[in-house]
Computed example of a mutant assay.
Amino acid sequence: MPKRKMIRMDGPQKQRFNFRIAGLGFRNGHVLVHRAVHEDFWTFPGGRAEIGETSVETLKREMIEELGVEVSVGRMLWTVENFFRYEERDYHEIGFYYEMDIPAHFPFHPSGIVHRLRDGKNDLEFKWVKATKAALTALDIPPYFIAEQIETLPPTPVHIIWDDGNLDR
């Protein structure tokens, strides 16, 4: 099996470029989110793309690895040039956000953790949260523009440049 190579590049002065693919899976008016248990914030499930794989392949692979299920990847919602600070690094991330269908046998509960796993050095937990601006805002789920648009998803893909304003540049 060939060695996997995630698309990530470190720059000078604690800068990092990342190519991340994420999915928004909906069920019963809720959307699936996850976090590393040591973090205060949540995000949409996904991960870094690997060299030689399409973004759809990345999302499918990540969901098999993280959820243990094969998802159907739907339409692209957003392409995001995301600038943020995390763990004392300035990130420049290109993110593709897709709708995805999660199989019905994946657990659903309107509150509480529905799935956990160890991913490398991180313990991840997944839960369903109401797909509303109020719920996502209360949860602290970057990039924050998604909370503004969650109740009315764009009909065609939208390109967003998002800067959380916490960069040293």
Score class of each variant (00 low, 15 high):
residue 2 P to H: 14
residue 3 K to S: 11
residue 4 R to I: 10
residue 5 K to G: 05
residue 6 M to W: 10
residue 9 M to A: 14
residue 11 G to T: 01
residue 12 P to K: 14
residue 12 P to C: 05
residue 12 P to L: 13
residue 12 P to F: 12
residue 13 Q to C: 12
residue 13 Q to W: 01
residue 14 K to R: 08
residue 16 R to C: 12
residue 17 F to K: 08
residue 17 F to V: 10
residue 18 N to M: 13
residue 18 N to E: 15
residue 18 N to R: 06
residue 20 R to G: 05
residue 20 R to P: 07
residue 22 A to K: 03
residue 23 G to M: 07
residue 24 L to P: 05
residue 26 F to K: 08
residue 26 F to H: 10
residue 28 N to I: 12
residue 28 N to G: 02
residue 30 H to R: 05
residue 32 L to Q: 04
residue 33 V to F: 04
residue 35 R to E: 13
residue 35 R to G: 05
residue 36 A to S: 13
residue 38 H to I: 06
residue 38 H to A: 08
residue 39 E to Y: 09
residue 40 D to F: 09
residue 41 F to G: 08
residue 41 F to Q: 06
residue 42 W to V: 11
residue 43 T to W: 04
residue 43 T to F: 11
residue 44 F to T: 11
residue 44 F to M: 09
residue 44 F to Y: 07
residue 45 P to C: 06
residue 48 R to P: 08
residue 50 E to C: 13
residue 51 I to V: 15
residue 53 E to S: 10
residue 54 T to Q: 03
residue 56 V to S: 05
residue 58 T to L: 02
residue 59 L to Q: 13
residue 60 K to I: 13
residue 61 R to C: 08
residue 65 E to S: 11
residue 65 E to F: 04
residue 66 E to S: 11
residue 69 V to H: 03
residue 70 E to Q: 11
residue 72 S to M: 13
residue 73 V to Q: 02
residue 74 G to A: 05
residue 75 R to M: 10
residue 76 M to A: 11
residue 80 V to K: 06
residue 80 V to W: 03
residue 83 F to T: 07
residue 86 Y to S: 10
residue 86 Y to E: 14
residue 93 E to A: 01
residue 93 E to H: 04
residue 96 F to Q: 15
residue 98 Y to P: 09
residue 103 P to V: 02
residue 103 P to N: 01
residue 105 H to D: 05
residue 108 F to W: 10
residue 108 F to L: 00
residue 110 P to M: 10
residue 110 P to L: 07
residue 111 S to E: 14
residue 112 G to V: 03
residue 112 G to W: 01
residue 116 R to G: 05
residue 117 L to D: 10
residue 119 D to M: 03
residue 119 D to S: 10
residue 120 G to T: 14
residue 122 N to R: 15
residue 122 N to F: 08
residue 122 N to E: 14
residue 123 D to T: 09
residue 126 F to A: 00
residue 126 F to T: 00
residue 127 K to V: 07
residue 128 W to D: 00
residue 129 V to T: 04
residue 129 V to N: 09
residue 131 A to E: 10
residue 133 K to G: 12
residue 134 A to G: 03
residue 134 A to R: 14
residue 135 A to K: 11
residue 135 A to F: 12
residue 137 T to Y: 10
residue 138 A to W: 03
residue 139 L to V: 11
residue 140 D to W: 10
residue 140 D to S: 14
residue 141 I to A: 15
residue 146 I to D: 02
residue 149 Q to H: 15
residue 150 I to K: 04
residue 150 I to S: 02
residue 154 P to T: 00
residue 154 P to W: 09
residue 155 P to T: 07
residue 155 P to F: 04
residue 156 T to R: 01
residue 159 H to A: 04
residue 159 H to Q: 06
residue 160 I to T: 00
residue 163 D to V: 02
residue 163 D to W: 06
residue 163 D to H: 02
residue 164 D to N: 01
residue 165 G to T: 00
residue 168 D to F: 13
